[in-house]
Design a binder for these strands. Sequence first.
DNA 1: ATTTCCGGCGCC
DNA 2: AAAGGGCGCCGGAAAT
Length: 876
Amino acid sequence: MAATGIIVPGEGNPKARWAIVGEAPGEEEAHRRRPFVGRTGQAQDAHLERNGLDRRDGWLTNLMKEYRQGNPYPEPEDVAKWGPVLLAELRKIKPKFIITAGALSTRFFLGESAYLEAIHGIPHRWSDGAGYDATILPCYHPASPFYNQDLLPLVTWDYARAAAAIKGKLPVDPPIDLHPKPQYFDLDDSNFDWYLGGMEEGAAGGAVGLDTEGVPGSEWSVQVSVAPGTGLVLRKGHPRFSRAIALLREKLEKKKPVLVVHPALYDFEMCLGLGLDFLYDIEVDIFDTMMAAYLLCVEPQSLKNLARRHCGMVMKDYAETVGQAGLEKQLGYLERVMEGKWGKPEARVEHENDGSAHLYTPQPVQRRAEAILVDYYSEKLDKEGRRTDPHKRWKKVDRELRVIVEKDLGAFPIGTLADIPLADAVYYAGRDPDANLRLYPKMKAAISAAGLDSLMTMKMRMLPAAVSMKINGITGDRASFEKLGEEMTEKMGLIRDGISRNYFQGRPFNPASSDQVATLMRRRGLRGEKKTSTGKMSTSKKSIEHLRFEDEAIEQIEQWREHQKVRDSFVDPVLENWPEKLASTRVVCDLKITRVSSGRFSATAFDDRPSAPLLAIPVRNELGKSVRDCYRAEEGYELFEADLDQAEMRVMADESRDERLVRLFNDGKIDIHTDTASKIFGVPYDQVHKMKHRYPSKRAGFGVITGIQDQGLLDQLRMAGCEGWDLNGVAKLRKEWFKLYPGVQTYMTGCHEECRRAGGVIKDRWGMQRYLPAIFSEDKWERWEAQRQTHSHKIQGGAQGMLQRTMGWLWEQLWDYGKAVRFIVQIHDSLMFEILEGLGEDVAPIILRGMTDVTKLRVPVKSSGSFAQSWGKLKD
DNA sequence: ATTTCCGGCGCC
DNA sequence: AAAGGGCGCCGGAAAT
C-alpha cells in the first residue's frame, strides 16, 4: 500500500508541444512514482494511441502531486498549494497545448465557471499573465467512465478533438462572446416596426431566433432576435402586444426565414397561446438547436450550455434569474402556512395491499411547512449538493392537506419573470432568442460536418406532427376509468384473500412485496431461478415463471401483479387530476423526441393534469384492452390506427440483403415466421404449431435483431408458456436460425467492423448516430455489448426513421384537412389519428400510402389500418 | 413521518 | 461473473 504524502512528479518529453494535466496521482501512480500508470493511465494511453499520439512525446503531470490514501477530492487549499508548482513546471516546458483531464484541472486554468458539461472538447485560449500562452483542451477525465458508462463517448470524443487540435486539424476558434453589450428591447423602448424590419434586411442570413417565456396556458412573452446581439421581447401583458404579434406574423409570412428555436416541441405550443400558429398558419423553415445537439450526440442539450460552448455567451439560468424572487414568495407562503390555523389533519383509512386497513394521520401541514423552511434556512443540501427546493418539497406534502391550504392561500407561488424588475426580465428573455440565432450557423455547420443534414431536415419536417400529438392527447372517459379501477380493486382483493387463505395460513399477505412472495415460496418449497442484485431470491417474472403452471399460488401472484401494474400506472393516476364535473377530457402526456438514442420517442405522465404515459399503455392482455377502451374518439370523430407490418424484420432484410429473407418478403405468400419454423422444425406449413413452432422461431428472429443470448431466449420462451425448452434446445434453435439466414450473420459482423472503422460510432440508414467506443474495450462484456448495439441500433433506428419520415410526409399531405384530421399518438411502429366522421374513406388510403410508399426498401413495406370508436376496439 | 433506493413490470 | 435495450411508473423496504 502506498502511503499518503508520496510525491509523484510529472514526466515525459521536456520539449513537449503538449501536456496533460490530471487531478492527483492514484495508488498505482504513488507506488511507481509516475503519473498516469494505473487503470486510468491505461485508459488514457488507449485514447492517445487511437488518435495517433504517444505519451512519450507529451508531458504528463497532475495538478496535485501528492498522493493521499482513498483519493479524496482535492480541496481549494490543495489547489492553492500545488497550483504554483504546476505553473512553474509548465513554464519550463511551455507546451502549446494543455489537455486538462477532468473538472478540477479545467477549472484551474479556465476559472470556476468553466463547467465541463458546457465546454468539454472546445479549445480555449489561456495565458499565465507573464508571457506564456497555451491552448487549453478541456476533456472529461479518462477515469470517469469507470463509474458512469455514459461518459465514455464524451471522453473518447474529447480526446479525439484534443488530438485533432494538437495536430492542427481542428481550427482553434475559442468561443468568444462577440456581442458583450447586447441590446434587448421591451416594446416600449424600441420601435418594433423598425426592429422587425431588420428581418427583411436579412441581417442574420435569413434566420430569426425565437423563444418563449412562461408555461402553456400562462404565457408571458415571445421573443425574437433578427440580428446577433439583439432581441425584442413581446410581452403578452403589454398594450401593444397584439399589434406587435400581427406585425411579427406578417413579417414572418413575407420573409419566410429559418426560425431557430429551442425546443420547437415546447415553443410551438407556447406560440399557439400567444397568437402565433406555426402549425396551420405561418409557414417557416425550422431549425431546432436542441434537436441538433441531440443528433450530434456529444453536445449538451440545454441552450445555456450550447451558447456557452459555441458562442462564449454566459447566460444566467432561469432559476438564478427568477429564483430569488420566486423563493421569497415561496418562503413567505410557507410562513403563512406555518402560522395558519388549519386544524389537525383528519385521520383517514388507508387500504394496504395486504387487505389490512389502518388509520393514517398525516403530520399537520404547519409542521410540514416548518420542516421545509428549516431545511432551507439551515442550508441543507441534497445529494447533488444543491440547496433543497421548497417547491419540490411542497409537492410531496399530502395532497388533501395541500388542497385545503391552496383553497385559502391560492396556489403555491412560482417565481416568474413578472416578479423581477422589468429591465432584468427583458434582458433574460431577450437573451434566449439571441443565443438561438447565434448558435444557428455553428450548429448548422456541425450538423453538416457530421453528415447529418438530411436527418436534420427529416426531423424538422416531422416536428409539426409531433407538436400536434403533444397538444392533442386523446379523449378519456371518466366513468370508464372509474369503473375499471373499481373492478380491478375488487378482483385484486379476491385474488389476495385467496392466496392468504389457501397458501399463507390466513395471515395478511401483500403480493406486491417481493420479500413476502419469497417467504411464501420458501414455505411451499419453491425456488426462484435468479437472485436480485442485493443477493435475495428474485421473485421476478423471469425467475418464477417456470412455476406458474406448476403452482397455483404463483399463478395467482402473477395475476395480482398484472392487475396492480395496470391499475396503479394507467387507471388511477389518470383520474387524479381529472377536472371536476367533466365526464370526458383530453388525456395528454409529455412527449420527448430528443431523448432515446435510436431516435424513438418517449413519453412521461404529467403530474398536474389528466395524463398517462400514452406510449406504454398495455396492449397485450385483456386488462390492457380494458384500459384502451377508456379512450374514445371525440363526438363526431373516429379513431384510425395504421401500423407498419414487421417493420424491423423488413429493415433487417433490406440491410442484410440476406437472400432468403429478401426472397420470402418479396414473395409475400407465406408468413415469414411460419416458413422459418417449418424449415427449422422440419414440418410442413399446415403442421406448424403456433406455440410449439412458430412462436420460438419468431422470438429467435427478434432476438437476433437485438442480440439476445441463449439464456435470454430461454427466459422468453418460458415466460410465454412454451414447454420442453432448455439451454441446449435454444442454442440449437438459434444456430438453425442463422443457418437459414446466413446473410444476417454476415451483416452483423459487418456492423461491428463498420463501427470500428468509424472509430467507435455507428449510424443507421438515416444518419442517426450512436457512439459506441466500448467496441474497443479490453473488457469482453463491454465489447460484446457495444457490438450488440451496432446492429440493434441500425435496425431499430431504421424502422423508427421510416415512421418519422411518414409523419413528415403525412403532415404535409393532410394539412389541408386542418383539425378534421388529428395526429394523436405514435407508438414506435404505429400511428393513430382522430378523423372527422365521413372523411375516413378519403384519408385512410393517404395514411396507408404514407406508411408504405414514403420509404422504399428492397422488400415491400406493408401496412394495415383500422377504424374504431375506442382505442381498445382498434386492431380487433 | 418522510425520503431514497430497488425490485418488478408495462410498452416497443 | 454476468449477458437484449431504452423508456417509464409504482410500491415496499431501507435509510434518515
